[in-house]
């Protein structure tokens, strides 16, 4: 559970609040960690990951959607993933269930945090894509079963 939200002051030294740096959700999100404890276990993988991109993709089974008890992977938010084996740089292409998804920043934060726990991953870039558009058809079979067990129709 998240306790009362902290009162957040504009950063010291800045003449005015700065928008261009984006929001830092660290104070709020430390406790969510993508809700990992509540997520179903990842599926059984067939052997070790064959490359860094696959390693990163598997890790996303441990990142929950902030509103549903399902991983971002089962929800179908992952549009693409690429990795540079030498530099450990991972680029994730993500889409969202709606253009006004209020959780975009949370999801990105959780994904970045989780991927950087992998020793082989040194940096994470997350791109937002809207094509192909997300629809419920992007939810995996496993995801449908999980959501069904929580009474969410897909």
């Amino acid at each position: 559970m998240i306790g009362p939200l902290p009162i957040l002051e504009p950063s010291s030294g800045a003449a005015s609040p700065r928008y261009e740096q984006g929001m830092n959700f660290a104070a709020v999100l430390k406790e969510t960690q993508g809700g990992r404890e509540d997520l179903p276990a990842p599926p059984d993988f067939d052997g070790p990951p064959r490359d860094l991109a696959e390693r990163a993709r598997r890790a996303l089974y441990e990142v929950a959607d902030p509103e549903l008890p399902i991983s971002v992977l089962d929800l179908g938010l992952l549009a693409g993933i690429a990795a540079d084996e030498e530099t450990g740089a991972v680029t994730v292409s993500l889409t969202y269930t709606s253009t006004a998804c209020p959780c975009m920043d949370f999801i990105q934060w959780d994904i970045r945090e989780r991927l950087l726990e992998e020793n082989e991953i040194q940096s994470v870039t997350i791109d937002t894509v809207w094509d192909p558009p997300w629809t419920t058809a992007r939810i995996s079979e496993r995801g449908r079963e999980i959501l069904g067990s929580f009474g969410v129709a897909t």
Binding site: T99, W130, D131, P133
Partner: peptide
Amino acid sequence: IHYKVRKLLDE
């Protein structure tokens, strides 16, 4: 633009 507007129009 081409790659952004379809989702928006779905909504």
